[in-house]
Amino acid sequence: MGADGPLARTLAALPLVDHHCHGVVTAGLDRAGFESLLTEGAAWPGVSPFDTPVGVAVRRHCAPLLDLPRHAPAEEYVDRRAGLGAAEVNRRLLSAAGTEVFCVDTGFGPDGLTTAGQLAEAAGAGAVAYEVVRLEGVAEAVATAGVEPDEYAGVFESAAWAAVRRPGVVAVKSVAAYRTGFDLDPARPTDAEVTGAAGRWLARGGGRLADPVLMRHLLWTAVGLGLPLQLHTGFGDNDIRLHRSDPTHLTDWLHLTSGTVPVMLLHCWPYQRQAAYLAAVFEQVYLDVGLALHHVGPGRARAVLAEATEITPFRKLLYSSDAYGVAEFHLLGALAFRRGLAALLQERVDSDELSLPDALRIARWAGRDNARRVYRFTDDT
């Protein structure tokens, strides 16, 4: 059966819940601008991001949706994209992704990205979007507004509560992996420690939050907010120190926070096996392999998903694209997830390690139902 079997058909038709993503640009892009968004690194002289697995996947899978032949040359792709205009490109690619729910991290990116609502509108077909609040942005806004060191903890907590009470907010997020790494003291910092760290940070003019004590305070504040907590782990741009983003550094903190809020490990590559271990031994831990899937391309997504699901409980795997900037990533993330998971589950069915009804249920769980269970979406959220 394979690509034409019930698993492939089910996943191809399944309306996905993308539990972590970003907006896309609303202005036209020249080649340099488009290439800058194709990579987590940089567009170096003489090295085009089109000459990467994700660049090849764009030309293979996105080009036909823009009325181009498969594998259209890069220059033709960019020219056609510009000719159609950003709104039409976004409409075509987002609608083809087949995502019905977007959970949008609105805390990163310049002006000119779609809002959560605009992203869902471009996707069409009744798609809806919710917001994920990035807590480092809340803390940095508190510092910018002005606060005394001994008042910082309370003001930040109040600001965080105000942020999550806005309509449409379903989760919070931290980018501690970028700022400090996860190899932090897991204990909740004392009031005196927070005041001292805030004093040092504010004396430097605030700005980018990267103090280990204040990051610990942020993570513990997040637990108290009661919403799912998303944590970037693993793969990211060159601002990250990859070895410090291994989620197993969180083990002691997860012990201390057991029974509190769901902890959503985002992306994870190349630590998908470590994330799977944590999901297998901690009730509150969930994972996805977003971002990596469109960078490895549909052809290798199965391998990444296979490692992520070796020991992960089936109710703990979610879908995310982590698409940012260009709608191509929303399309490629969904395509890679659908095809990769279908191939993986089909192999297990063919070897009689999994029944077809079980495989179909797992497919629906991972693509949609697990996220709905954790985030508890409601029409009036």
Rank of each mutant, 00 (worst) to 15 (best):
M1V: 11
A3R: 15
G5Y: 00
G5I: 01
P6K: 06
P6Y: 03
L7Y: 00
L11A: 09
A13W: 00
L14Y: 12
P15L: 11
P15C: 09
V17T: 15
V17E: 14
D18F: 11
H20F: 07
H22V: 08
V24I: 15
V25D: 04
S36F: 00
L37E: 02
L37K: 12
E40A: 00
G41M: 01
A42S: 14
A43F: 00
P45C: 01
V47R: 06
P53L: 01
P53M: 02
C62L: 14
A63H: 00
P73H: 06
E75I: 03
R81M: 14
L84W: 10
G85L: 09
A86Y: 10
A87G: 14
N90E: 05
S95R: 15
A96Q: 09
A97N: 13
T99W: 13
F102D: 14
D105S: 08
L113Y: 14
Q118A: 15
Q118W: 11
A122H: 13
G124V: 03
V128W: 02
E131Y: 01
V132L: 13
V138M: 06
A143S: 09
A145N: 04
V147G: 06
E148K: 14
V155N: 03
S158N: 04
A159Y: 07
A160H: 08
A162Y: 02
A162R: 15
A163I: 02
R166F: 03
P167L: 01
V170T: 12
V172M: 04
K173N: 10
A177F: 12
R179I: 11
V194F: 08
V194A: 09
G199L: 10
L202V: 09
R204M: 11
G206S: 11
G207S: 07
L209W: 02
L209T: 02
D211T: 07
V213P: 01
L225R: 12
G226M: 01
L227D: 04
L229K: 08
L229Q: 06
Q230Y: 09
G236I: 01
D237F: 04
D239P: 00
H243T: 08
H243G: 11
T251I: 01
H255N: 01
H255G: 03
T257Q: 06
T257D: 05
S258A: 13
H267L: 05
C268L: 08
Q272I: 07
A276K: 08
A279W: 08
F282L: 03
V285F: 06
V285C: 13
L293S: 09
L293Q: 11
H294W: 13
H295Y: 15
P298I: 05
R302E: 15
V304Q: 05
A308W: 01
I311H: 02
P313H: 08
K316C: 13
L317I: 10
Y319A: 10
D322Q: 07
Y324M: 06
G325C: 00
A327F: 10
H330C: 11
L332V: 04
G333D: 12
G333Q: 08
A334P: 05
R339H: 08
L341W: 00
D350V: 05
E353L: 13
S355R: 09
A363I: 03
R364I: 01
R368Q: 14
R372I: 07
Y375W: 15
T378V: 04
D380E: 15
T381I: 06
T381N: 07
